[in-house]
């Protein structure tokens, strides 16, 4: 391995090491939370709702829960990790190393991406054991999940870099991210909503992400898959470019 490869692998390893040291909180708790959602919304409500658009309700819900697990864990991990390191001053060790802004940004991003992947992967495995979960369009599903994971990893980095206190991170998660995810149609179909809520849902970017992932699993969508994928790729690229500029300028990282 070259020195640059060792450096990047170590930067990334540090991020994974962090969440694996507190895995009850970073892996166990989100898994439990997802299963509570499956139990309450899938199993309990499912006995009353039965099917949505010809799909068993619990199966309809699970793709959104997998997407939610990946996105919230990616976001939370990166925003918390960066803010904690800024508070401790420990981030100076990475910042004073020969690592480039791109290396630092990718390593911070991939930490949350990995945590999201692990939680989403475990959720998928467990859900597959509980219900008959199809994977109808794997070529849509994999890029969609990866883009969603990377998008929210980048968003977590952005919030972590900008944040000056834990309240800033909590605010973004509680008042922006969670409402967008819950109102994006994880637990229902937007077509069931009365106006103007159905139309308003189309202004929620998470709605398109959920539809992409749901289409990948069960083959049902309410939006254009091609357009949604392109828009998601463009949004992910845009936030990556913004973050790279912030890292290059040292915004709120270097004095």
């Amino acid at each position: 391995m070259s020195a640059a490869q060792i450096r990047f692998a170590t930067l990334w390893r540090r991020e994974v090491n962090r969440f694996m040291k507190i895995k009850k909180q970073t892996i166990g708790a989100p898994l439990l939370e997802t299963f509570l959602y499956i139990s309450v919304f899938g199993a309990a409500l499912g006995t009353r709702i039965k099917q949505l658009h010809g799909i068993d309700y619990v199966v309809f819900v699970i793709p959104g829960l997998i997407m939610m697990a990946w996105s919230t864990n990616a976001f939370t991990n990166n925003s918390s990790s960066i803010l904690q390191q800024k508070f401790q001053g420990a981030i100076q060790d990475q910042l004073s190393s020969p690592a480039s802004p791109l290396e630092l940004l990718l390593a911070f991003s991939l930490g949350g991406f990995m945590r999201g992947l692990i939680v989403a992967g475990l959720t998928f495995i467990a859900a597959s054991l509980l219900v008959d979960l199809p994977v109808d369009h794997v070529l849509v599903l994999i890029p969609s999940l990866f883009l969603v994971g990377f998008f929210f990893s980048q968003l977590g980095v952005l919030i972590g870099v900008r944040a000056e206190q834990f309240d800033d991170v909590a605010f973004a998660q509680t008042f922006i991210l969670t409402p967008l995810i819950f109102l994006g149609g994880v637990f229902y179909s937007a077509t069931l909503l009365p106006q103007p809520w159905e139309t308003l849902t189309h202004f929620n970017p998470v709605y398109y992400m959920i539809n992409l992932v749901r289409y990948g699993f069960v083959g049902y969508t309410e939006v254009s898959i091609t357009l949604s994928l392109l828009a998601l790729a463009a949004a992910t690229a845009a936030i990556f470019v913004v973050n790279l500029r912030l890292f290059s300028r040292g915004y709120k990282l270097r004095a």
Partner: peptide
Amino acid sequence: DFHGGYFGMPK
């Protein structure tokens, strides 16, 4: 160990 890694030192 991590510091050494940031500076490219082999394992």
